[in-house]
Amino acid sequence: SVPLVLPKRGGVQVQVVVGEADDAGRRGVEVYGRPEPEDLDGDAGDGGEGAWTLHARGRLAPAEVSGGESLTVWPPTGAREVPLDGVYEHLEELGYAYGPAFRGLRRAWLGEGEVFAEVALPEALRAEAGRYLLHPALLDAA
């Protein structure tokens, strides 16, 4: 397989192929790519009929489902709250700069091998939230 290189102009078609499950539920997965039908000169390319190039190959496995407790109590029983004072400033010192849209972490708790969090979309972004199944800034905060 070879790296998938994005052109300076134009696009790349991507195809993900997932194989049949084996006895353990694992499946092969392959990622292919080819240039968009239009080439860099703006002339008609190959109509998207060029050969697909293999860029990645791997295996998918079913997730292990635990019989975890239902979160009917919030915050979770036995979890201890983590103070968040200065968390974004500390992350910035580590090289992670979060602008106002991505500062949605409100509260967090640690359980036994688990982290629980309350996140909220900043008020300025709430009007556009309906455009997404899950707003990217909210996902990032989580």
Score class of each variant (00 low, 15 high):
Arg103Thr: 05
Gly99Pro: 09
Gly10Lys: 00
Arg34Glu: 04
Leu94Thr: 06
Asp43Met: 09
Val16Gly: 12
Leu134His: 13
Glu36Arg: 00
Ala44Asn: 10
Thr53Met: 07
Pro83Val: 00
Glu112Thr: 08
Arg9Met: 15
Gly11Gln: 00
Asp140Gln: 06
Glu123Pro: 00
Val5Phe: 07
Arg131Asp: 13
Glu112Arg: 10
Glu20Cys: 01
Glu123Tyr: 06
Gly130Thr: 04
Gly130Gln: 08
Ala51Cys: 03
Ala141Trp: 01
Ala124Tyr: 00
Ala63Gln: 11
Ala79Tyr: 03
Ala21Gln: 02
Tyr88His: 03
Asp46Gln: 11
Gly113Asp: 08
Gly50Cys: 03
Arg59Glu: 09
Leu134Pro: 04
Gly58Val: 00
Gln13Asn: 11
Val65Gln: 10
Trp109Asn: 10
Arg26Gln: 14
Leu139Trp: 00
Gln15Trp: 03
Ala142Cys: 05
Val31Thr: 10
Ala137Met: 02
Val16Arg: 01
Arg26His: 10
Pro3Asn: 05
Glu123Ile: 00
Pro75Met: 03
Arg34Leu: 03
Pro3Tyr: 05
Ala129Glu: 14
Val16Met: 02
Asp46Thr: 11
Gly19Asp: 07
Arg26Met: 15
Val29Glu: 03
Arg106Phe: 02
Arg107Glu: 15
Leu71Asp: 14
Pro76Gln: 10
Ala124Lys: 01
Trp52His: 09
Pro37His: 08
Leu84Asn: 11
Tyr88Asp: 06
Ala120Thr: 06
Gly99Leu: 14
Leu40Gly: 08
Ala56Met: 04
Asp85Phe: 04
Gly10Ala: 08
Pro62Lys: 00
Glu114Val: 11
Tyr132Ser: 08
Glu30Leu: 01
Val119Pro: 09
His90Arg: 09
Ala79Lys: 02
Leu125Arg: 08
Arg57Cys: 03
Gln13Glu: 13
Leu134Asn: 15
Leu121Asn: 11
Arg9Tyr: 07
Gly95Leu: 06
Gly58Asp: 05
Gln13His: 07
Pro35Gly: 08
Val5Thr: 12
Val115Leu: 15
Pro75Ile: 03
Gly28Gln: 05
Ala127Glu: 15
Ser70Asn: 11
Trp52Glu: 09
Arg9Ile: 08
Glu114Phe: 06
Val17Glu: 12
Gly78Arg: 04
Pro62Val: 02
Gly95Cys: 02
Gly45Lys: 03
Gln13Gly: 07
Gly86Phe: 01
Ala56Asp: 08
Pro35His: 06
Ser66Val: 07
Leu91Gln: 11
Asp39Thr: 06
Arg9Pro: 09
